[in-house]
Design a protein around this nucleic acid. Structure first.
Lengths: 122, 122
DNA sequence: GACAAACATAACTATATAGTTATATAGTGA
DNA sequence: TCACTATATAACTATATAGTTATGTTTGTC
């Protein structure tokens, strides 16, 4: 069955993908996979600044990927939608496959046969 | 099993998610789900400029999500990795769920704010 | 060869956002 | 109340990139 997403839904889906399109946010999600953690723990683990981590957590929370819960002075963030790991696994496999294909392509290029279009590859 | 992606792999996965994080690219992918199409067809269907579509196609191609094949003057682009639709479906469901949850949250607004929204029938 | 069609690319503008520093807010205990 | 801790936010800079206009490149036809 074809996707055929509405315009609105396309925007929503894109927004969600963009949320996952930042290394720092992926690192945060991976950390939280071990269980809920207060902000400071995340800051310490990822060696980033506290405001930066807070901002990313805010984005993830607003996107519904993580949840927050207060506990005294600490605020614990945790995974709200475990589907993200399924996504990451799929993409990871796909990326690996693609990289492998690229290598094979280089391998299969005999030095005699040159491409007609010179790509600006270094 | 936890993800535990390497730093390099995290970057790769993020890059791939970012590739999917643009509405125009999602629209292109949906179009190509019907089958390979030359650039001009895509331009006409999406009512965007030809250079813009070309640039997005270039990005998708470089990311291994679409493939290209010349046929006379035309260049046909097609889906190279159908996994993207699986991803989109997952994200679409997740986004829908999240939106529904947000509505429910507004419904349950405790303090005197008159922010009530249409409630789902009990 | 000249010319046109289909596509790619360059150069630019505008916007979004990751990260920074400084400051504000909320909870805890004296 | 004040001080301290944990987190959030504001204001800013720098970079990435979507879209534009103009031009280049490849292929087919004459």
């Amino acid at each position: 069955m074809p996707l055929n997403l509405s315009e609105r839904m396309t925007e929503l889906v894109a927004q969600r993908f963009r949320l996952l399109g930042e290394p720092m946010r992926l690192r945060i999600l991976q950390l939280l996979e071990q269980g809920p953690k207060p902000v400071n723990d995340i800051v310490a683990s990822l060696e980033s600044s506290q405001p930066n981590v807070s901002k990313h957590l805010q984005a993830l929370c607003q996107g519904g990927l993580v949840s927050r819960r207060r506990e005294g002075l600490n605020i614990f963030y945790g995974i709200a939608d475990p589907m993200v790991f399924k996504l990451c696994n799929l993409v990871c496999r796909s990326a690996t496959e693609h990289t492998r294909a690229q290598l094979a392509e280089l391998d299969a290029a005999p030095s005699g046969t040159e491409r007609k279009r010179a790509k600006h590859s270094g």
